[in-house]
Simulated assay, not measured.
Amino acid sequence: MNELEGRIQAILDAALDAAFSHVRHGGDHESRKLVAARLLDAAQSGMTTLDELTSVGRRALIDLKARSRA
């Protein structure tokens, strides 16, 4: 892993943690996996800042909760 990949991985990890920061016990594995996939897609499309990815992660969690209620 080169320096850029390591930096982006750290930002992805931080964004995932931020998205679940208010969720009891940090969320379940399946929810984290789905949000992480959305974050990875966003990063691959060019979103690489912590703010951008945190927003994507929070939006993905909101969408996930809305789908589970429907």
Score class of each variant (00 low, 15 high):
Val56Gln: 06
Ala15Gln: 05
Ala14His: 11
Thr49Phe: 00
Leu50Glu: 08
Ser21Gln: 07
Phe20Thr: 05
Ser45Lys: 08
Ala19Pro: 01
His29Val: 15
Gly46Glu: 10
Ala43Glu: 02
Gln44Thr: 14
Leu16Arg: 06
Asp51Ala: 13
Ser31Pro: 02
Ala37Gly: 02
Lys33Phe: 15
Glu52Cys: 01
His29Leu: 14
Ser45Phe: 12
Ala19Gln: 05
Gly57Thr: 10
Val23Glu: 04
Ala36Phe: 13
Leu34Cys: 14
Arg32Asn: 10
His25Lys: 07
Glu52Leu: 09
Ser55Cys: 14
Asp41Gln: 03
Leu50Asp: 15
Asp17Ile: 02
Gly46Gln: 08
Asp41Tyr: 14
Ala36Asn: 05
Leu34Ser: 10
Gly46Asp: 04
Gly26Ile: 03
Leu50Trp: 11
Met47Tyr: 05
Ala42Thr: 07
Ser31Thr: 15
Ala10Tyr: 14
His29Cys: 14
Gly27Lys: 00
Val56Asn: 02
Val35Cys: 03
Phe20Ile: 01
Val56Trp: 00
Leu50Ile: 10
Met47Ile: 12
Gln9Asn: 14
Leu40Asn: 06
Ala43Asn: 11
Ala15Glu: 04
Thr48His: 02
Leu53Val: 09
Asp13Ile: 11
Gln44Ile: 13
Ala15Leu: 03
Gln9Tyr: 12
His22Lys: 08
Ala10Gly: 11
Val35Arg: 01
His29Glu: 08
Ala43Arg: 04
Ala42Pro: 05
Gln44Asp: 11
Leu39Asp: 03
Asp17Phe: 01
Asp41Met: 12
Leu16Lys: 05
Ala43Met: 06
Leu50Phe: 15
Asp17Asn: 06
His22Arg: 10
Val23Arg: 04
Ser45Met: 15
Leu40Cys: 05
Ser31Ala: 14
Leu12Phe: 15
Lys33Ala: 15
Gln44Tyr: 13
Leu40Lys: 05
Leu40His: 09
Ala37Tyr: 03
Asp17Cys: 14
Thr49Asn: 01
Leu53Arg: 00
Ala43His: 07
Val35Pro: 01
Ala10Phe: 14
Ala37Phe: 11
Ile11Asn: 00
Glu30Trp: 15
Thr54Leu: 05
Leu53Cys: 10
Asp17Arg: 08
Ala43Phe: 08
Asp41Glu: 08
Glu52Met: 14
Thr48Pro: 02
Thr48Lys: 07
Thr54Asn: 06
Gly26Ser: 07
Ser55Glu: 09
Gly57Val: 10
Ala43Lys: 03
Asp28Ser: 11
Leu34Pro: 06
Arg38Lys: 11
Arg32Thr: 01
Arg32Ala: 08
Val35Gln: 02
Glu52Pro: 07
Leu53Gln: 01
Ser21Gly: 10
Arg32Ile: 02
Ser55Asn: 12
Leu40Ser: 07
Ala14Thr: 15
Leu39Val: 09
Arg32Ser: 00
Ala37Leu: 09
Leu40Ile: 04
Lys33Gly: 10
Phe20Met: 10
Phe20Leu: 03
Ile11Gly: 00
Ala19Asp: 00
Leu12Ala: 04
Leu50Asn: 07
Asp17Met: 12
Thr48Cys: 07
Asp13Ser: 12
Asp13Thr: 15
Val35Tyr: 06
Ser55Pro: 10
Gly46Lys: 05
Lys33Asn: 13
Ala37Ser: 06
Ala15Phe: 13
His22Ser: 14
Leu16Trp: 05
Leu50Tyr: 15
Asp51Phe: 12
Ile11Ala: 04
Ala18Met: 13
